[in-house]
């Protein structure tokens, strides 16, 4: 796989505080990466460093396999924290400045404004825009040069539900075109909805880096019940595939330690004379996995 971004041993210290601590990970082309972590875990600092606005204390990174330079940033689109534009300029003029910096064609301005639904407002001053519109203009600016990578830092922060849905739609559209996306967020469901890979940070350290669906070794659990729950429980405890069996209200929760399909479990229990009234196999949600990971560390 082609590497779009490679981060090696990146460290940033603000005085005594270590905001990012020996961080290494790489981003492959065409995937949607989530950079996940609670507030203050070093997400924005990390993005600031690879975007040339924060000086690293140590470590390096490579964009597109090349030494870092401002040229590579022209192929990256980024929205950090909140949309930053000249309030006194129109949407169009603001994008003209971005186009001049990135060396993009002016024709792109119209195209991108249409994508984010701001074409009719192009002559209006940025200061007159609502937060949702400002955020959409920021996406248009980031997309202006058809970047290889799009970096979004908390893109839905502070937006109303319609605004959030609109931004997510745009992000999914962009991802569908094969653009690599790095999405920093503390909202787990947001990451879960759009990301294929995730890097979990806490206090500047990497907790996990890899595919979202391989995030924990857990095989999930079964939720079962039958007419005779105590017999069911004994039977489940006697099977070697379960790590633990717990009573959970009317149901019994059996946690797997190796893979087992619901069909197989059903067959085994039926052969032992137990007829199930309820059978569900669940995988841990990202939220639970995230909490587990952070709790294991503490």
């Amino acid at each position: 796989m082609e590497k779009v971004l490679e981060i090696n041993h990146l460290t940033k210290k603000f005085g005594k505080l270590t905001a990012v601590n020996d961080l290494s990970f790489s981003v492959e082309k065409g995937n949607v990466y989530g950079l996940l972590g609670p507030n203050g875990s070093g997400k924005s600092t990390t993005l600031g460093m690879i975007l040339n606005v924060v000086n690293p204390t140590e470590g390096n990174w490579r964009w597109f396999g090349q030494e870092h330079s401002t040229e590579s940033l022209k192929k990256v689109g980024a929205i950090i924290e909140r949309p930053n534009f000249y309030p006194y300029l129109s949407a169009e003029k603001n994008l003209e400045i971005v186009a001049q910096i990135k060396g993009a064609d002016y024709a792109k301005i119209e195209e991108k404004l249409k994508i984010v639904g701001l074409y009719e407002r192009k002559k209006d001053k940025f200061a007159s825009f609502s937060l949702g519109m400002k955020q959409r203009l920021a996406i248009a600016a980031a997309m202006l040069n058809d970047p290889y990578v799009l970096i979004l830092d908390e893109p839905t922060n502070g937006l109303d539900p319609q605004g959030i849905i609109k931004i997510r739609e745009i992000i999914q559209q962009i991802a569908a075109n094969g653009t690599t996306i790095i999405l920093a967020s503390h909202l787990l469901d947001e990451v879960e909805k759009v990301c294929s890979h995730v890097v979990i940070l806490e206090k500047g350290k990497t907790l996990y880096s890899g595919r979202v669906d391989e995030m924990t070794a857990s095989f999930g659990h079964f939720e079962v019940s039958s007419a005779n729950n105590s017999l069911l429980r004994q039977t489940l405890e006697s099977l070697p595939v379960f790590e633990a069996v717990k009573e959970n209200g009317n149901h019994i929760k059996a946690i797997l330690k190796e893979d087992l399909s619901p069909e197989d479990l059903n067959r085994i229990l039926f052969e032992k004379g137990i007829v199930l009234s309820h059978l569900v196999k669940r995988k841990e949600s990202l939220e639970n996995q995230f909490l587990q990971l952070t709790q294991n560390l503490n």
Binding site: L51, N52, V53, T70, E71, L73, K74, V76, A78, I80, R82, N84, F85, Y86, P87, I97, V98, I101, K102, A141
Partner: peptide, 21 residues
Amino acid sequence: TNEYSNRTLKQNLIDGLSKKE
């Protein structure tokens, strides 16, 4: 100073303008 208060300096750098430029 507007470049600082509007945070456009930061955005300019992110967009690929170098500090020297």
